[in-house]
Amino acid sequence: MPSLKELAKRKEMLTPGHRLCAGCGAPIAVRLILMAADKPVIAASATGCLEVSTSIFPYTAWDIPWIHSAFENVAATIAGVESMYQAKKRKGEITEDIYFVAFGGDGGTYDIGLQALSGALERGHRFLYVCYNNEAYMNTGIQRSSATPLGAWTTTSPEGKAQPGKLQWRKNLTEIVVAHGIPYVAQSAPWNWRDLVNKAEKAFHTDGPSFLNVLASCNRGWRHATGDTLKIMQLAADCCIWPLYEVENGKYRLTYKPKEKKPVEEWLRVQGRFKHLFAPENRHLIEAIQAYVDREWESLLKKCE
């Protein structure tokens, strides 16, 4: 991986002036990922915060070729772009190497875009899919997705007398992608820039599909101060609720091991979306979440042995 100094000299592909919120994790993730590209990139976005905030006509924040077509299909859209590239390359009409990357939120990836993602992975297009995962539908105003953690408040899983926020565990999308048997899959988060850039570089260099599930906090939806974005994501790694790891050709490797595994309560406590869990009648949910995290963490450690 190039040094930070060298990386900082690379062209900004997502330029300043976009309208994502202060404190949003998404543009930090996107910029770090694109920084890892040592060749030209063509990007596609699913409908979502990143898309609407970077492309308000007549402006665009993308200084690279970029396409958005709809919500559930960014994997199919970039697959089409990549297919045309393969056709032109085979005919000798294009000689240069180009990277292809798709960005989708968790709604556009875990939920409505899962089919298109699965199809594109199975067909083996040479592209990187990035899920910037803020654990809910933030663009439409904080609705629960299948990436939303148990107990979280969202506008479609509000806490009330009868229900304590979201009732279901989140889906383990990273493992679902691993099950496709593609060459490179990783989980990361932009608080650890070196980890994310390194994984993005590996992903770009992969000859086939690659996938990054990147935690990208939304301070509006998670209910935390704008300045706490990176801190809260690091806490997610230290509490082992969002471990950083990679699966390269089937081989698991933990890329960040917390010095001391913190209780998940510390992560829950700093976010307004979990506030209600600290009421006495909901304490058992915190214990249940801890048990879930412990189980998942142990399982991951075993895979990484």
């Binding site: 299909n73 859209t77 970039i78 697959a79 089409g80 772009v81 298109a116």
Partner: peptide
Amino acid sequence: VESEHSAMSACIGAAAA
């Protein structure tokens, strides 16, 4: 592709390419 929705989406990506 794995659906007609993806067929047209891939056609859009390819044609824009």
